[in-house]
Nucleic acid binder design. Structure first.
Length: 728
DNA sequence: ATTTTCGAGATTTTT
DNA sequence: TCTCGAAAAT
């Protein structure tokens, strides 16, 4: 095996096979290459069986890419042994273990939408008023308040709350109120009833099994000779438990990350664990191979404004490159049109130079809706584009409906039933649905069973209902005899779903269903040897977010910054860079200082995606939209003078107005934070000031952030109420 | 009791 | 663009 084109530091990382190794890898420092080469090195040089290496990536796409790279290095066809996301790993793990341990055979995985439906039901049952935001708030806390010991025993011990959990309930009542506790329990029992796990539960459950069954734990610890994890700065503390547990036996844990690129704290990621980790070998990769020095300088000058960070300056020996261009538009249309023009200019063939390809461009935005005006402009200017996961493939209505039919066929799944019982319309409305639920409760059966019983009685023996039951039954007869793709094809015709879309002339939806059937065929081809069941397919598919089609076309790519993580493009436009959008007002309002730093890291990630040239665009917005005035983001101001030039009609006074506007925004967000006791203000490692004790460092926050243990420079450790502290 | 239709309103980020 | 809700129509 040849280790080509790696510098000394990277080589050292590749060969650091034993013990605990931490790689702090800056943006564009080639960490994916290092990971792939290390994997190949372990297999080819050291002679490890790939079945004994666990390589955890952040997304499925990254896993796919990693497999590809490794195959290329080793010159092999397939390399899919345990190169996957933590979530996929948990699914594999649970599938292999839980049935033997006395749990039901099949669990199902719920996405955010399904969870929302469950929560809404709980609200309705308990007659608690709800709005979109209260449901969201509830779910947010719900997933935070669950932990392994709480949720999972209820899977084995059904329906009632165990004694030791009573005080947990009491704690919840004290913490979040009576209603919350009721909702919590109700939703939990629903999950238990369907053996439905959400993304977090997959991890909770895995940890629970590892803790409760030492022999299982040992088996897996023996199996995993090497554990390597990518994007560690974005892992939650629970994910840490998993890979620390799994690597405990052999002690070979290889973690790679960059604290400056942590953009998932809002989802519970905990970068401190990575920062304070004590490895045997510590390697910093800070040479950037991706961007020009101009772009890198800009990125460095932005991230320097963050206070909570390990200082690390990326450098490059590459050339200076083009200056960064900032464009200020009067409104979103002007901004979008400017982007179109630039792309047209750069793609045009020049006399001696080839023009850039459309696929060399990426448009990055903070929120997906910001692509809209740009899309319109592209359509007008005939620039080909794709939106990466605008509405993600598996979240489309028609796809979810099709899959729900499959779920209903696979088992008596009430969640799926509710989704599709009236699609296409069978005159099963709200009230009929309630009747069905009631009957199901009395009979102690599933809703589908209940409907079957009810269809014997008058009023419920409508043709539409009988046809529905007939359709499901006849397809169920075919389970095991037909391939999954054929089953789907069959049910879609039989249920009338296809006819419905055809009648409504929803061509695109039909095409998407066709695409789904194709993707199932691919899946079946990939898993020919192993005898896949419908349940297994549904579990696997739940973790996929994007269908990877249409990726090699010559198109401009539009995506959110979060989706751009780990990618690189020659030309990058960061659009919609207005104060309030980026940094995002809502996020800052919710999590204050923490969020502001995260927004800045987000900006850092966006900037470092660019290889050759970076464009920053922003506009004053429509005055129509509630009279919002928009000003250039503070992140543009944070770029060192001379690195960027401004185009577009812009008064110089805008800059000073922007500063005032930023200050107002800060004040607004700050004020709201004081009002809500919910938010934790300080975190481990924060430098804080206290009027009486002076300066100190936070050791930990507790009581939901209300109090902090602070190590004061001149007074030692004290516990202090958080609102008496200020961040330095 | 259900379905359709039409208009208003909102929109962070994701495994 | 898409989703949700209210009111009208079946």
């Amino acid at each position: 095996m040849k280790l080509e084109g790696l510098n000394d530091r990277q080589l050292e990382a590749v060969k650091a096979t034993e013990g605990k190794v931490r790689i702090i890898a800056g943006a564009g420092s080639g960490k994916t290459r290092v990971l792939a080469y290390r994997y190949a090195y372990l297999v080819d040089e050291v002679g490890i069986d790939p079945a004994n290496i666990l390589c955890l990536t952040f997304t499925n796409k990254a896993a796919q890419e990693m497999r590809g790279r490794i195959c290329r290095i080793l010159g092999i066809e397939q390399a899919n042994d345990f190169i996957c996301t933590v979530h996929s790993f948990c699914v594999k793990f649970l599938r292999e273990e839980i049935f033997r341990l006395g749990y039901p055979k099949n669990f199902q995985i719920l996405d955010a939408e399904d969870m929302k439906a469950l929560a809404k039901e709980s609200f309705t049952e308990l007659k608690i008023d709800r709005t979109e935001s209260t449901v969201e708030q509830f779910l947010h806390n719900f997933s935070k308040d669950k932990f392994p010991g709480w949720y999972l025993p209820s899977v084995i011990v059904p329906t009632e709350i165990k004694a030791e959990q009573i005080q947990e309930v009491q704690r919840l009542i004290n913490l979040r109120g009576d209603n919350y506790a009721k909702l919590f329990i109700s939703t939990l029992l629903k999950q238990k009833k369907y053996f439905a796990l959400d993304f977090n539960d997959l991890i909770y459950f895995t940890i629970h099994i590892l803790n409760e069954f030492p022999e299982v734990c040992q088996k897996w610890q023996m199996r995993m000779n090497y554990v390597m994890v990518d994007e560690v700065q974005d892992c939650t503390s629970l994910e840490w438990v998993i890979y620390q547990t799994l690597s405990a036996k052999h002690g070979n844990l290889f973690i790679v990350g960059d604290p400056d690129q942590n953009i998932y704290e809002w989802r519970g990621a905990d970068p401190t664990a990575f920062v304070v980790y004590k490895p045997d070998t510590d390697i910093i990769l800070d040479q950037n191979y991706r961007s020009t020095s101009t772009i890198l300088d800009a990125a460095n000058s932005i991230i320097d404004y963050n206070t909570l960070r390990i200082k690390k300056n990326l450098y490059t020996v590459g050339e200076k490159g083009d200056v960064i261009t900032h464009f200020h538009g009067k409104d979103e249309k002007e901004e979008a049109d400017w982007i179109s023009q630039q792309i047209k200019k750069l793609t045009k063939k020049k006399l001696f130079k080839k023009g850039a390809a459309y696929s060399d461009f990426a448009i990055l935005v903070r929120a997906s809706y910001l692509t809209r005006s740009i899309e319109q402009s592209f359509l007008k200017n005939e620039i080909p584009y794709v939106i990466w996961g605008g509405v993600r493939f598996f979240e489309r209505k028609e796809i979810k409906d099709s899959l729900s039919y499959l779920r209903l066929i696979a088992g008596d799944d009430d969640i799926a039933f509710k989704r599709i019982a009236n699609v296409p319309s069978r005159k099963i409305g709200e009230s009929t649905m309630e009747k069905i639920a009631e009957t199901a409760k009395i009979q102690g059966c599933s809703m589908y069973e209940a409907l079957k019983i009810m269809s014997q009685t008058k009023g419920y023996n409508k043709d539409s209902i009988l046809q529905f039951i007939e359709a499901i039954e006849s397809v169920r007869d075919c389970v095991g005899k037909m391939s999954i793709s054929d089953l789907l094809d069959y049910i879609i015709r039989k249920s009338g779903l296809m006819e419905m879309y055809r009648r409504d002339e929803e061509e695109e939806r039909l095409e998407n269903i066709g695409e789904l059937i194709n993707s199932i065929k691919t899946y079946e081809a990939d898993h020919k040897e192993d005898d896949i069941t419908l349940d297994q397919y549904l579990q696997d598919i739940a973790l996929y977010t994007n269908a990877d089609y249409a990726k090699d076309k010559d198109q401009v790519k539009m995506m959110t910054i979060h989706q751009a993580k780990g990618l690189e493009f020659p030309y990058v436009f960061i659009a919609g860079l207005s104060e309030g959008i980026m940094p995002n007002k809502r996020s800052v309002r919710e999590r204050k200082h923490k969020a502001m730093e995260e927004e800045r890291r987000l900006m850092y990630v966006a900037v470092t995606r660019a290889e050759q040239k970076l464009f920053l665009t922003e506009s004053e917005g429509y005055s129509m939209q509630g009279g919002f005035e928009k000003y250039p983001s503070r992140f543009i101001r944070e770029i060192k003078q001379g690195l960027f030039v401004t185009e577009g009609k812009m008064d110089q006074s805008i800059w000073s107005k922007a500063i005032t506007f930023s200050k107002d925004l800060d004040k607004e967000c700050e004020l709201n934070i004081c009002d809500s006791p919910e938010g934790q203000l300080f975190f481990e490692g924060n430098k804080v000031h206290h009027n009486h004790f002076g300066d100190g460092t936070v050791i930990k926050a507790y009581d939901n952030g209300e109090f902090c243990e602070v190590d004061f420079e001149s007074f030692g450790v004290r516990a202090i109420k958080s609102d008496k502290l200020s961040l330095l």
